[in-house]
Design a protein around this nucleic acid. Structure first.
Lengths: 127, 127
DNA sequence: TTATGTGTCCTAAGTAAGTAAGACACTGCA
DNA sequence: TGCAGTGTCTTACTTACTTAGGACACATAA
């Protein structure tokens, strides 16, 4: 039985946007899809995306220009990396290992999965 | 920036109870703390814990006896393990590795953390 | 200037989650 | 029998989230 239930769509979208900045899909000072476009992509109301952008702007990840669009702030990528790494070490990793241990599993299972996904990437990169 | 925001306290409590069944804190056919006790422990309203027990009973993890208490169902531990393992392989592990990769980290960081927490447990078990 | 696409704001509504406080029914025990 | 502890249920209220639909302000290009 799994009971996680994370709601707040606008928060999840914020996380996705950060993902895309980290991965380089959105470069710094580059334009992000418009509120209406993102609302269509995620199939939510424009107000929901608006709330996403509210907190992203509050955290200086993006900046909005009335009538033009939304852009990635300079230094956003680095800022996200720092925050994510901290969160990872402090919470995600310990929680992950805790759940791993609760299932009597070992790190080998994780390493194996890592190598498998890594292999598929190598194949794409090679040849 | 981390935007997770998982609400629904009653779901988190359900997860905690399952943790405690997995770890052996609550044995099968053994009594679980009363609704009022758990409400006090987690500092929530009794109705919130009631909702937790509603879904745990629906999933046959527990059974309630009016006037007596709440008990762990026979086979609950096994049932939770199956569900958790499935969830782990299907979602938690892939998502974990994805986030790891987004941070340009490698599996070595995870192995290291695993060994460290494992060491501290070994010390407690030995001598 | 006008049209279009953008961000911004508003009101209205519904749902889920959580709290609060109390009442009732059942069980075991003194 | 009476009491205490339990699960159960009810009503009322607040808050956060999400949707819906529309309106306005601004910037750019035709």
């Amino acid at each position: 039985m799994i009971y996680q239930n994370e709601r707040a769509i606008y928060m999840k979208i914020a996380d996705r946007v950060c993902d895309d900045i980290l991965s380089g899909k959105y470069q710094e000072d580059e334009r992000v899809p418009s509120i209406r476009e993102l609302a269509a992509e995620y199939e939510v109301n424009t107000n929901t995306v608006l709330r996403t952008f509210d907190i992203l702007q509050r955290d200086e990840i993006i900046y909005q220009r009335r009538g033009i669009g939304v852009f990635v702030s300079p230094g956003a990528r680095h800022k996200i990396r720092i925050a994510r790494k901290h969160e990872f070490r402090q919470h995600e990793l310990p929680e992950f290992l805790r759940r791993l241990r609760l299932l009597d599993m070992t790190i080998d299972d994780v390493v194996k999965a890592w190598n498998e996904t890594k292999d598929s990437k190598d194949e794409a990169g090679t040849t």
